[in-house]
Design a protein around this nucleic acid. Structure first.
Lengths: 81, 81
DNA sequence: TCATATTGTTATATATATACAACAATATGA
DNA sequence: TCATATTGTTGTATATATATAACAATATGA
């Protein structure tokens, strides 16, 4: 099982599943399946999504559960000297 | 089509396909298919392979052809101030 | 040279990702 | 409130990843 941040990345950009699906060239229901964790993206789709959101692939997909982006951001800012 | 550096990463470690396959839990012929580019790894397998080699996933897989690691290393060293 | 390990190739079977359709449930905006 | 967009869910069909087997070709080491 691979975890992903598709839903939150999409929501932050104010996109519908349909918008996102068209942007990366898949069926809009495929986005729904991925967001619900019904199955994993292919490597190819994972790269397309990461590139579309302009994030490294491991910021969008991970074999371990993600922290929230808020948590991660706060920790990074706290760690800055 | 996703490019990968599995063959060279494996060779640098002196592993056979069988060794690598056992380490990441797939059939040894699956490694062969990936190395020959017959098909792409799943996201799950891609993460396992990257973790096994201790490299970020985009150092092992890319939607665009890789430079050789030698080239990349040489450029990085040249870029150091 | 011989024996063995490794790799390449072909073929078949199964699991999973994706497409697509239909419809219900929920939100959103006029 | 009504109309419309979005999301969730179920089902069927197809494409692709993976497992497995068999065997040929090539390398490696005794």
């Amino acid at each position: 099982m691979i975890y992903n941040r598709i839903k939150i990345l999409r929501t932050e950009k104010g996109l519908s599943r349909k918008d996102l699906a068209e942007a990366v060239g898949v069926n809009f229901q495929t986005i729904g399946y991925l967001e619900r964790g019904d199955y994993n993206a292919s490597l190819e789709l994972a790269f397309k999504l990461a590139e579309y959101f302009n994030v490294p692939i491991d910021m969008a997909f991970s074999p371990r559960p993600f922290k929230t982006m808020a948590e991660e951001l706060a920790e990074l800012r706290a760690a800055e000297k």
